[in-house]
């Protein structure tokens, strides 16, 4: 997928990631007085481990389990007719009805905002949440839609030639955030 990418530098190691996620969990708890109708929904692929980590932190802090859902936005993408072969659909799974609940969408990187747009459309097909908020580990700028995150782990100014690579233990076998640079083919 990422051909001609060369690593530039590591911006977060596992320890720093854990610290940031702990702080993000704290912010979510702060803004949600009643945790009983909160659902964390991770956007596939790497929004899912983020949501799971946030839920674990919230449980550690407050002693309350927060359900985690999984959203596969493939069927709601706005670029399906322009990409070569259909991307694989891995499925959406919400732990409970989201009507009148609070949903925190979780994703690893916020970039153009198009993924979040698709996620909102899909979520609304499942019901009418009282509120939907957005938590991202990295905000790298370059929005193409009027979408902002409510909880941000770290803001990282980037150029369009750069790629942010977030790795989680459960999906990638290592835990770090790196900036990679797209090299023009020789």
């Amino acid at each position: 997928m990422h051909e001609n990418l060369t690593p530039k530098n590591t911006i977060l190691d596992a320890k720093q990631m854990a610290r940031i996620i702990r702080r993000m969990a704290g912010e979510i708890v702060e803004t949600h007085k009643d945790l009983s109708d909160l659902v964390l929904v991770g956007i596939r692929t790497r929004g899912v481990p983020l949501a799971e980590k946030l839920a674990a932190e919230i449980e550690r802090m407050e002693g309350q389990k927060v359900p985690v859902g999984v959203l596969d936005i493939t069927l709601y993408r706005d670029d399906l007719s322009t990409i070569a072969a259909q991307p694989q659909v891995k499925g959406t799974r919400l732990p409970r009805p989201i009507d009148d609940g609070d949903v925190v969408l979780c994703d690893d990187v916020l970039y153009t905002g198009r993924t979040v747009r698709a996620a909102l459309d899909e979520l609304i097909d499942f019901g009418r949440p009282r509120a939907v908020r957005l938590a991202v580990l990295i905000d790298r700028g370059h929005r193409e839609l009027p979408i902002q995150a409510d909880v941000v782990g770290k803001k990282v100014p980037t150029s369009n030639e750069e790629v942010i690579e977030v790795s989680f233990l459960s999906t990638d076998g290592t835990e770090q955030v790196r900036i990679l640079e797209r090299k023009p083919p020789q």
């Binding site: 069927l75 399906l80 694989q88 659909v89 959406t92 459309d121 097909d125 499942f126 019901g127």
Partner: peptide, 26 residues
């Protein structure tokens, strides 16, 4: 295998309150 795995994901759409996705719009 790919067809069957993809069908697995679509069976979930049939269980939603709104059984419709915008994928083949147009």
């Amino acid at each position: 295998g790919l067809l069957l795995d993809t069908a697995e994901s679509f069976s979930e759409v049939g269980e939603r309150p709104i059984k419709k996705v915008p994928t083949l719009r147009g």
